[in-house]
Write a protein that binds this DNA or RNA. Structure first.
Length: 421
RNA sequence: GGAGAGGUGGCCGAGUGGUUGAAGGCGCACGCCUGGAAAGUGUGUAUAGGCAACCCCUAUCCAGGGUUCGAAUCCCUGCCUCUCCGCCA
């Protein structure tokens, strides 16, 4: 959420920022409601002040045994006026809050302006594509051949958009989780295990609600949501919290499943494991002092890249254009992995700085050096998404004889296995 | 799921209709005291909103309604916590 005062003082800036993100929100309505709200507050507070004063006098008179009937009668009138104004205020406040929840975070000035992903900028590439002078099978073919992946079984269980890993495939999945968690915790991230079902308030905190309501699974019987990313519970761990300065920065990590309805995504990257309703992810979250957040964004990208470097997988990093930024993000880097079987880059991580947008929504603050309350900046990055990592590994590490070499960093987690055959 | 108890400031804990934003204590900050420290002592110590304003005003004692001239205090609803029973990985 943006600060109302900021919107009031910079309406054009907000309009431009939202437009650059292709977001629709009614800033003029907000300004109008804000004006109405302050008018009402002004009036009602004056009346409440009067009433408070009179109340004291009534109390005094009653104690002294005098009659206060005249004052009480007068205050009854004032009370009615107050009730009326309070009602108006509640209504305006409700509308204002609703409008405010639809205002996206503004893109950072360094984010390339552009209306969609075509305007994203590749900032660097790492590693070399493996030399494979044979036809590299896409993961769904090699996965089936080596009995690692059973897509029909998943369909039978849950319908379209799920996968079943078996044998060495499932083992590889678990190895990756352990490898990643071990790396991140060694680098100072504290590990958490968190709920995968959360409340609407929690979903609001990180900005999934209201905008992404249709993209999430909702449990109607209990009015709860399945998390679309570990970011949600992990960041909201700090909902309604007041942090002391020395508690920052917060560096945390968790392994969680992610559930996404992918409504409207039919037909895009639907083969194999690439776009599914449930996948798993190791997620990193940072909560930092505002002045550090852009520096920390670079640290976080580096942390996610470290996983890929350890796995020796070629990737590229791109900076998202304003139009491709998510609702809550001010700046975002995507990590994309080359997948030779599929023949394209796969988005495997997205690392974002939300500045104070999420902190304001979830009412997380810290006491700064001047003992003043301030909203910290929140960041997160996938480190990494398993359902894209596994395809990349089985394709990049595929050998001419149809076997798959196990990346050396994973062997200790795979009982020493060097190959999957 | 059944029965009961309870939710007050950073923490503990008073308070059942009238200067209570809230006694008292702890903690914390600053000062005094001290050679230095402890003890002692004094002062201060919430957040948000209105406003040009750190003056002032308003709101906030889990949340939302209600009763009343006036609610932390009374009534209703919801949420959460604890205890006992049941169930269970």
């Amino acid at each position: 959420m943006l600060d109302l005062k900021f919107i009031r003082e910079n309406p054009e800036l907000v309009k431009t920022g939202a437009a650059n993100k292709n977001e629709k929100c009614d800033i003029d309505l907000i300004l109008k409601l804000d004006g109405e709200r302050r008018d009402i507050i002004h009036k009602v507070e004056q009346l409440k002040g009067e009433r408070n004063k009179a109340s004291g006098e009534i109390a005094k008179k009653k104690k002294a045994g005098e009659s206060a009937d005249a004052e009480i009668a007068a205050m009854r009138q004032v009370g009615e006026q107050i009730a009326g104004l309070d009602n108006d205020l509640r209504e305006v406040d409700g509308k204002l809050h609703e409008a405010l929840t639809w205002v996206p975070n503004l893109p950072h000035e360094s984010a390339p302006v552009g209306k969609d992903e075509a305007a994203n900028k590749v900032v660097r590439e790492w590693g070399e594509k493996p030399k494979q002078d044979f036809k590299v099978l896409p993961h769904w073919e090699i996965g089936e051949k080596l009995d690692l992946l059973d897509l029909p079984a998943a369909t039978a269980l849950s319908g379209n958009g799920f996968y079943v890993l078996k044998g060495a495939g499932a083992q590889l999945h678990r190895a990756l989780i352990n490898y990643m968690l071990d790396m991140h915790t060694s680098d100072g991230f504290q590990e958490f295990n968190v709920p995968h079902i959360v409340s609407g308030e929690t979903m609001f905190g990180t900005g999934q609600l209201p905008k992404l309501a249709d993209d999430m699974y909702r449990i109607e019987s209990d009015d709860l949501y399945l998390i679309p990313t570990g970011e949600v519970p992990l960041t909201n761990l700090f909902k309604n919290r007041i942090l002391e300065l020395d508690e920052l920065p917060v560096n945390i990590v968790a392994y969680t499943p992610c559930f996404r309805r992918e409504a409207g995504a039919a037909g895009k990257d639907t083969r194999g494991m690439l776009r599914v309703h449930q996948f798993h992810k190791v997620e990193l979250v940072k909560i930092v002092r505002p002045e550090d957040s852009y520096n920390e964004l670079e640290n976080l990208v580096a942390q996610c890249e470290k996983v890929l470097q350890g796995l020796e997988l070629p990737y590229r990093v791109s900076e998202l254009a304003t139009g491709d930024l998510s609702f809550a993000a001010a700046k975002c880097y995507d990590l994309e992995l080359w997948a030779p079987g599929v023949g394209s880059y796969l988005e495997i991580s997205s690392v974002s700085n939300f500045e104070s947008f999420q902190a304001r929504r979830m009412k997380c603050r810290f006491r700064n050096a001047d003992k003043k309350m301030e909203h910290p900046h929140t960041l997160n990055g996938s480190g990494l998404a398993l359902a894209r990592l596994i395809p990349a590994i089985v394709e990049n590490y595929q050998n001419a004889d149809g076997t798959i070499t196990v990346p050396s960093v994973l062997r200790p987690y795979m009982k020493g296995a060097e190959k999957i055959s």
